Simulated assay, not measured.
Amino acid sequence: MSNNTCACKVPLKSKLLITGGSGFVGSALLDELVRSDKYYVVNALRKLTGMKTGNVEEFYLSTLSDMTNWLDALQNVDVVIHSAARVHVMNELESDPLQAFRAVNVDATMNLAKQAVEAKVRRFIFISSIKVNGEETSEGKPFTSWQRPEPLDDYGRSKLEAEQKLLALAQVSQMEVVIIRPVLVYGPGVKANFEKMIACVDKMIPLPLLSIANARSLVFIENLVDLICVCINHKNAANQVFLVSDGVDYSTVTIFQKLAKALHKHSMLFPFPVYIMKIAGLITGKKQVVQRLCGSLQVDISRTKELLDWTPPVNTDEAFIKTVEHYKKYLSKL
């Protein structure tokens, strides 16, 4: 039985299939594709939204696995943008986490990719993760797209395995593959740790972070979406791996200060020995949280900029303001 919700004529515009269209990145990408009106989009979803526009068709996805039938969704598709994934979680409940990540991030991805080859899809864009490179960088040694990957958790390992299999598939087929590894993505509607940071600043909660001296790369959602859109057609993107960030790196202290400025508040940070914070993280089981606050994670996007003639279109001051304004607007509705 067909999963497709409607039968449409072959569009005159280039046709895209996106997965993960209800997620943070996928929904922002879908919004941009709708605004641009350059493409006809098939949006694969586990739960249909009933969205009705002239250039978007929803495709019901009962499950994302190595058994999913993509035949109807891939008809006449030129480019697949695959952002759906089993994401990194802080409190893992699976008895075999690596297998759980592989089932979605590797097996389901390759099932879609192989069917895309059969459907003669021109390009497959895979949204991976900087966790493929690792968890932390040392001073002056940012991650690069050409260095040997060293993922340290099961999520990162599964993303690397998917990347390797996709690039191998590109070598034996006509389909081009593009790998994009974002750093921490933020922007209007961001959840998890970044939203918690905004909330702490907004509530003027004193935090012992002023002694931290690190550097972290971030990417604003609009900058990431812009890069994805460039990769749809750019000839130099074929079979390449791209790291993406805003192009500037900030310490944890500076991030809190920028959020405070955007909120018109004071950042209530005070000095505290970093080594004691790290010991406390070990004792309380919050090692990863402390590592993200105290450690550095920088990426070198020079190759991305040079190959694609690309520069992040939104500067960080504007990005922080947009993120905070959405947060304040959301709070007013609670």
Rank of each mutant, 00 (worst) to 15 (best):
L259M: 13
V225F: 04
D153Y: 05
V253S: 06
N111A: 02
T254M: 12
E58S: 09
R123Q: 06
A170R: 06
I301L: 02
C8N: 08
V106A: 02
V289C: 00
D226F: 01
A100E: 04
K38H: 07
Y60F: 14
E139M: 11
L331P: 04
V299P: 01
V201Q: 05
V172Q: 13
L71P: 00
I232L: 15
C229K: 09
R46H: 15
V201H: 02
V290D: 05
Q174I: 01
E94M: 06
E222A: 14
A119P: 05
H82F: 08
E94P: 00
P208N: 08
Y60E: 12
E176G: 13
I127P: 03
V89L: 14
K13M: 13
R216H: 07
C294E: 03
V10G: 00
N55K: 13
L29A: 10
Q164L: 11
T53K: 10
V190C: 10
N133Q: 14
L93R: 13
K261S: 15
I279Y: 06
Q240P: 02
V314I: 15
N233Y: 01
G23K: 09
D107P: 00
D153W: 04
V190Y: 06
R181H: 05
K261M: 11
K286P: 01
F270W: 11
F270Q: 05
S251I: 10
